[in-house]
Design a protein around this nucleic acid. Structure first.
Lengths: 113, 113
DNA sequence: TTGACGTATTCCGATATGGGCATACGATGG
DNA sequence: CCATCGTATGCCCATATCGGAATACGTCAA
């Protein structure tokens, strides 16, 4: 098996930097593909493909506006992610303390890699 | 180019469900690989590989404890993610409203796919 | 209808993935 | 020093990825 299809969930969708850029851009409003592509310095087909992924996981919506298709943000799918990550909030402070223990340990453990 | 190396950043690291499970488990304290593997129903080599990725992006630390190696959480790397996603917080409420507009539009736009 | 524009899809290649299996490695205890 | 336990690596496979180029598609205007 390879990695789960990127199209499978929001976690995968936002793992790709360009897709994060797209989402960020869409916060300022709907946009056609060409716009996004140009603004982000990617090819039109490239942008289209990323948007397809975002559409399939529901982070983005399309709306036909005449000859154009306007892409808009649907951030609801980000909420579960925010919550999952938030479940670690208490730990990223505590981590500093643990680090001390760890560092002391290093002195005699000699970590590889 | 293929997908960016999963080992490149935390976003990629947590894109894989089993790795999320590992992180979640580690909240309750340090654990040796075998423990994790068994608890999560994966092979020892499998767990080792996932832990390697998590180590490389800094979400996990190792500490040699005699014959064993104890893996521990280092959640600091999750903070940037939390913040990035948090940047969309205002939108996942607003999204409902936008959806209305969208749905009305659908009636005459006939979206494919 | 035909053309033009905006966009999606297809096909390709190079690369990376995750899982299974066998095995190499490292540290400890005898 | 050697056997053993806990763990990491290497190798192989099937599959998925992203990017580029060419092209098919859909909608509108003349």
């Amino acid at each position: 098996m390879a990695r789960a299809a990127t199209t499978s969930d929001a976690f995968n969708a936002i793992a790709e930097p360009q897709r994060r850029d797209i989402l960020a851009l869409l916060r300022s409003g709907e946009r056609p593909v060409t716009d996004l592509a140009q603004e982000l310095g990617m090819s039109q087909p490239g942008a289209s493909k990323h948007l397809r992924v975002l559409r399939e996981v529901g982070l983005v919506r399309v709306r036909g506006a005449g000859k154009q298709r306007l892409y808009g943000l649907d951030a609801r799918g980000l909420r579960p992610i925010h919550e999952w990550v938030g479940g670690f909030e208490q730990f990223w402070n505590e981590s500093f303390d643990r680090l001390d223990t760890y560092v002391q340990d290093l002195k005699q453990t000699r970590q590889e890699e």
